[in-house]
């Protein structure tokens, strides 16, 4: 274990996690909204946003899947030390999955919940290069007054996911300290 593993967690977990959760709640409740979070400094390539989401929502009850370059010994150790979350290599077991869009594909193996318990599905935390407001795909649905915009890495995949409703995957997007979200309830219309 390197000394860096011990760094980068919440300094005051109860309060920082509370603020971070409110940001998560806000972006999930209003798809298209972008929030800025702080408090976690995870090892690269995990972004600050992804690190904050991880520390706020993941713990020993939530198996975490790390896709592609996210799966490094440094990140595994950091997650084990700060969140205590088990790392799984099986997508079907993941409560949360972290990675770039390309590394997370194909999505089919992630659990989408059952008809009776659609909440038992994976939440994907997708690393994007940029996250700018009022750009990208037109989206509508619960939490959106008329239409909103969100820069999505794909259109069809999210449309297919919405067709599974009420089952389906939920997404967070992160770029640096910025986060946004796309729940399964949101209809994606394309750019």
């Amino acid at each position: 274990m390197s000394a860096d593993t011990l760094q980068g967690g919440f300094a005051d977990a109860p309060r920082e996690a509370a603020r971070a959760f409110r940001a998560c709640l806000d972006v999930m409740a209003r798809p298209g909204t972008i929030a800025e979070v702080s408090g976690a400094v995870p090892p690269a390539p995990l972004s600050i946003g992804a690190g904050v989401i991880l520390l706020t929502l993941c713990d020993p009850d939530t198996p975490v899947y790390l896709a592609g370059r996210m799966d490094s010994p440094e990140i595994r150790q950091w997650i084990s030390f700060h969140a205590g979350a088990p790392i799984t290599e099986t997508r079907a077991e993941a409560s949360f999955a972290f990675g770039t869009w390309e590394a997370l594909l194909p999505l089919a193996e992630f659990p989408i919940g059952s008809a009776e318990y659609p909440d038992r599905s994976t939440t994907l935390v997708v690393a994007l290069d940029r996250l700018e407001p009022d750009m990208g795909a037109r989206i509508s649905g619960p939490g959106i007054r008329d239409v909103a915009r969100l820069p999505l890495p794909d259109t069809e995949a999210f449309q297919d996911n919405h067709l599974l409703y009420p089952q389906g995957l939920d997404f967070f997007f992160t770029a640096g300290a910025r986060i946004a979200a796309l729940p399964r309830s949101t209809k994606v219309e394309g750019v």
Partner: peptide, 10 residues
């Protein structure tokens, strides 16, 4: 909090 977020998504 995880339950609230899933509730928000459905």
């Amino acid at each position: 909090r995880r339950a609230i977020l899933k509730g928000m998504a459905i």
